[in-house]
């Protein structure tokens, strides 16, 4: 068994707003390749903060260790942030990461096909039928030439899933991918999504506020506790797993 794809130790993100501060602390977190991770919790508990750090789009306030191991290479994310190597982080995102947002995040001026091809195109990957196959699997093949504006919310989320998978990333991070869809469709989309990443042996990290949607999908749930100070001015969430 290869080493962990993510290796975090004492990673902290602090955010302070007027009279209120929030801290997310990850004492230790290891995620193995091919693992399926669920991050469950009410909104505001720091799920998105953790996801953004794992997607290299949010700089931790402090960390002892933050490593990313992929394709036999170890990347020191903590150091890249410290040295402001933004373009290096962008390159890692581009090559190894897929991200599904809460709502679409699709480019309105591109067709469904072009949106799904976006990552492939900046990587210079040739069209090998992947996008068409993904579209069929996601039930989008009739919508390929439409623009996102012509689709329903559920369909747009499926396009976002397609885009996150099209360039065969090592990890897919999904932040409440079904929050804006009705519960019935949400369950179905989540099921298709997990099935697809499983079939492709992609590591997946999903945040959701509703455990019951995904508990039957066999994900490892990260534990986290939120403590508030008595006057409510400080909240700290500790994630472990």
């Amino acid at each position: 068994m290869a080493g962990p794809i993510y290796e975090l130790k004492e990673v902290v993100k602090t955010r302070a707003g007027d009279g209120y501060s929030f801290r997310l602390r990850v004492p230790s977190l290891r995620i193995s390749p091919g693992e399926k991770i669920a991050l469950i919790g009410e909104s505001g508990c720091g799920k998105s903060t953790l996801l953004d750090m794992l997607a290299f789009v949010l700089q931790p306030s402090g960390c002892e260790r933050f490593r990313f191991n992929v394709e036999g290479k170890e990347h020191d994310i903590a150091r890249a942030w410290k040295r402001r190597r933004q373009n290096r982080l962008a390159a890692l995102r581009r090559r190894h990461l897929g991200y599904v947002m809460q709502t679409g995040g699709l480019l309105p001026y591109l067709t469904v096909r072009e949106n799904m091809e976006l990552s492939r195109r900046i990587l210079g990957m040739k069209d090998d039928g992947t996008v068409a196959a993904l579209a069929r699997e996601l039930g989008l093949h009739r919508h390929l030439e439409k623009r996102p504006g012509e689709l329903s919310t559920g369909e747009r989320q499926r396009v976002a899933i397609g885009r996150a998978l099209a360039h065969r990333p090592s990890i897919v991070i999904a932040d409440e991918p079904t929050a804006s869809v009705d519960p019935f469709a949400a369950e179905r989309i989540m099921a298709i999504f997990i099935e697809m990443v499983e079939a492709r042996n992609i590591t997946v990290i999903v945040a959701s506020h509703a455990w019951r949607h995904i508990k039957q999908l066999g994900l490892r749930r990260l534990a986290h506790h939120t403590r508030r100070s008595r006057d409510g001015s400080l909240a700290e969430t500790v994630v472990s797993g």
């Binding site: 789009v57 933004q86 962008a90 581009r94 947002m101 995040g105 480019l107 900046i122």
Partner: peptide
């Protein structure tokens, strides 16, 4: 920010 997320560089 979507473009940044999918890996377009600052430049």
């Amino acid at each position: 920010s979507v473009l940044r997320l999918v890996g377009f560089r600052t430049g």
